[in-house]
Design a binder for these strands. Structure first.
Lengths: 122, 122
DNA sequence: GTAACCAATTACCTCAACGTAACTAACGGA
DNA sequence: TCCGTTAGTTACGTTGAGGTAATTGGTTAC
């Protein structure tokens, strides 16, 4: 029987997995995937949910995720346009890990702010 | 008894937790914290371990992590300089989540590359 | 003396990320 | 006829991330 060997390493500069890491270790990706974890959602709602994201950045982020197979795009032949986005099975494997990061940021921000003050005071 | 309420949300543009998320959901942070998870390490070794990182970026990343209280800096009064970095207790709570991201990138890059080809072929 | 060592800083440049605003398509409703 | 609707694109400008190279400082080895 064969065993999967770690052919790839993010620590190698030229390894494609590093660029992949750069895409998933990204604040917009984290927020989009976290929100989409709650289920299929249309563009406009996603944009409203993620306060402050511009339409341009949201479009780009979703395109990249779709390209990598993490998100599916559902287009309805309606007018005005109606487009929904959904995590794929692969994308869903990222939901929990990225949710953890979002939660970490929220749960530890108070402590971080204190540390920062202490550091800045020398 | 009191319950911790979610005062903070990364989905709010002006919430400080979002900037915190931006710092931890970052490829350099992910690699530095992952490597430091193996134990205290000096600057030069860290730089060698993370192939392709420039001294400038490594310094900046470590400063930010130190400022937020995720990393401790140990300076030895020697010459040539000897400086070691170590995860704090707080920083260590991030090790596992960020390691997961690195592993994800490595383990799914093959599938991602296939998806990407399929997408680019229309 | 001077070269090598290591962590760090600085100046300078380039390029990617991001924001804003204008514009498009196609239909239903006033 | 004109307007509002939604997802998306494009052009343009600004900011920030990041690379490279030069420089610092105090020892030890030559």
């Amino acid at each position: 029987m064969s065993q999967t060997v770690p052919d790839w390493s993010v620590l190698a500069a030229s390894c494609p997995s590093r660029k992949s890491l750069a895409r998933i270790a990204n604040k917009w990706t984290a927020m989009v995937v976290t929100v989409l974890g709650n289920g299929r959602m249309r563009f406009g709602d996603l944009k409203q949910e993620i306060d402050g994201i511009s339409g341009k950045v949201l479009t780009e982020t979703l395109r990249d995720l779709e390209r990598d197979g993490l998100v599916t795009r559902h287009v309805y032949a309606e007018v005005p346009p109606r487009v929904e986005y959904e995590l794929t099975e692969l994308g869903f494997t990222l939901h929990e890990p990225l949710l953890v990061l979002c939660r970490w940021a929220e749960q530890h921000i108070a402590e971080v702010l204190v540390n920062r003050e202490r550091y800045d005071a020398r």
